[in-house]
């Protein structure tokens, strides 16, 4: 079996170790015996919706984000939406997540248009949300936790029908107001978590690989179990440090 990972704007949207997510996806798929091809899709290049198994877009600086917003509108937006409609897996982190919503209002008169994959919108906030995050998720049917680090000032709000990625147990999440973090639409996931997010949350990495495999090779395609010992230790270490700071109710997890 083979998977093609499309890394959008790898040179511009890579501000918080986003490469770690590509490394995690590639390695875990390879360790499970799956052949992996990573395709870098830079500014100006078109995207072949049917050829993408997993799409990734990371975070960027303001200057880069404006360039990307334009490119998404003019070059890649349609193909991204098409791929997700067809069941491709997608992970968008921070700045990438913001631009896949409807818009990002960056200032009094400045609005970056989004592609509306997620029924969500972002407005610039005055406070920067920085720190460790712990999120509880149940979208796989099982209860899992996600750990990561967030650093954003934009506040993202979800439309009525859009599901969040999970519930914030510690940290700020989408907007520091409603206790929700990220967004899920079909197999597309938006999140503010970096750190990088996937290496320390191998169950999530494996979930993205699994749904991509099943879309390409049918529902019976299965993913071999791959060791998670170092990853689990790092995951638990984040939970422990949050708990040690007394910032987590003992009953929370």
């Amino acid at each position: 079996m083979k998977l093609r990972i499309c890394h959008l704007y790898p040179d511009l949207m890579n501000i918080y170790g986003d490469r770690g997510n590509i490394i995690a996806l590639s390695r875990r798929a390879q360790w499970a015996g799956i052949e992996v091809e990573v395709v870098n899709v830079p500014l100006g290049a078109s995207l072949d919706a049917s050829a993408c198994d997993i799409i990734f877009i990371g975070g960027g600086q303001d200057k880069e984000q404006a360039l990307i917003a334009k490119d998404l509108q003019e070059v890649k937006g349609k193909a991204i939406i098409e791929a997700v409609q067809e069941g491709a897996a997608l992970l968008a982190v921070c700045g990438g997540y913001q631009l896949l919503g409807k818009y990002f209002k960056t200032g009094a008169d400045a609005v970056l248009p989004g592609i509306g994959l997620f029924d969500a919108w972002t407005v610039a906030g005055s406070k920067r949300c920085i720190g460790d995050v712990l999120v509880e998720c149940d979208f796989t049917g099982e209860r899992h936790t996600l750990v990561g680090f967030e650093n954003h000032s934009g506040k993202t709000y979800l439309g009525e029908s859009l599901k969040p990625l999970g519930k914030v147990l510690h940290g700020f999440g989408n907007n520091a107001e409603d206790g929700r973090e990220g967004a899920i639409y079909k197999n597309a996931f938006g999140t503010y978590l970096h750190g990088s997010i996937l290496p320390k949350n191998p169950w999530f990495t494996d979930h993205l690989i699994r749904v991509a495999l099943q879309r390409r090779y049918g529902d019976q395609a299965s993913l071999a179990r791959v060791d998670t010992s170092f990853e689990d230790r790092a995951h638990q270490a984040v939970i422990a440090r949050i708990r040690n700071r007394g910032k987590l109710d003992t009953g929370a997890i």
Partner: peptide
Amino acid sequence: GTDISWLWD
């Protein structure tokens, strides 16, 4: 620096 995601770079 409290954000260690730079290790991935």
